[in-house]
Design a protein around this nucleic acid. Structure first.
Lengths: 205, 205
DNA sequence: CGGACAAACGGACCGCGGTCCGGTTCCATT
DNA sequence: AATGGAACCGGACCGCGGTCCGTTTGTCCG
């Protein structure tokens, strides 16, 4: 028993999440792909968990072990879709990507976010607030990006809150209400957002 | 057949909704009351439709005929709760109610709305977007009120959109994220909102 | 008062999200 | 290669939201 202590191989002060077994990882891929396909075919509300499990050739329990809940699965699909957009913002062509003036980037961001939200509206609804605290990547990403742009523009104040104020009117719930229910044309909504941005950032052209 | 035309008793150009039968009205009351009681006792997520039906001494089908869906029922309960607040805004004491300067009223409105939203957060979640287009009264009421205050303050621009921009950061989803998840103190969120209002309305004290 | 029709009622029934647990598979260690 | 145990797998099972349809009740007329 009292051997030479081999010394800790790793010191997991904060417990590292144990790695995923090979079959588990494989099934996660299978499931995500099947889910993406089915959502594309039948729309998010028309996809049942049993269907996803069957399409992936896997038991239902497995679906829930890999992705917590239906919302979790939808959030994963959504994340996958949004990652393309995130790439465009981080390293795509200007003015959305880097290279343009911050104000131009902000305008491009608003328009792009507006459209992306509407395209993914169904999925966003289905994802709910997936898994609670670990809010899915898109929200946090957008917030940080706007925060950065505001900083770049020399805006002073509580930047995290101002960033949220700028993003809130672009939330799916609200956009859906304005565009689908009240019938505001998209251009009007965008123009309104630009006006808001102008007032928050300060006077502009 | 060719009698004297008795003349139309009513001319329902827009079809009037046929009146509710007496037992139907009674059951609606019974159900709403039972639902309010159960929600108060067990919290919105812990209330099942069967339980509400049983508590009201009524069949389950009746619940769904009177209130479309679970969300519909929750929206009705929510509406009931919010009507008190609406009264305070419309005819309560200043500065929330009439009598104060528009800017003071706006500030009072923001604070009050912030608190009310947090109190009703659970119910708001459960209500979803009850019944689709007929968005429950609170949303439309708050929007109109802010619209009015902005007008009173002499703000120019697309007022309906600016009103929404001012209300969006007070939406339950967003507040919940900021307060519960990110742990921002309530005072900070309110101060941020005041700052936003200042920027939208124009310079102020 | 009586009869007829529409509207409302109730509860059996269905589909889906989510859980549970006995059996199986992978990986580390010897 | 053999072995022990942890992680994973599958599908039977459960509770709840929502629907359906045969029966009852209210209301309006003659």
């Amino acid at each position: 028993m009292s051997e030479m202590l081999p010394g800790p191989r790793l010191l997991p002060l904060v417990d590292a999440p144990p790695p995923e077994r090979r079959d588990a990882a494989r099934n996660r891929e299978l499931l995500l792909e099947a889910a993406r396909r089915l959502v594309h075919q039948h729309g998010a509300p028309g996809v049942t968990m049993d269907a996803v499990a069957a399409a992936a050739g896997v038991g239902k329990g497995t679906v829930f072990r890999r992705f917590e809940s239906r919302e979790g699965l939808m959030a994963a699909v959504l994340n996958y879709s949004e990652s393309e957009w995130q790439g465009a913002v981080m390293s795509g062509p200007a003015p959305l990507g880097p290279g343009a003036e911050p104000w131009e980037r902000l305008l491009a961001f608003g328009r792009s976010r507006l459209e992306t939200t509407l395209v993914h509206a169904e999925l966003i609804r289905a994802a709910g607030r997936a898994g609670g605290s670990r809010s899915f990547a898109a929200y946090s990403f957008a917030t940080r990006h706007v925060h950065y742009l505001l900083h770049e523009l020399g805006v002073t104040g509580d930047l995290p809150l101002l960033a949220v104020a700028l993003l809130a009117p672009l939330e799916a719930l609200i956009l859906d209400q304005q565009v689908t229910v009240e019938g505001f044309p998209l251009e009007r909504v965008y123009a309104g957002w630009v006006d808001l941005a102008r007032r928050i950032v300060g006077v502009r052209t």
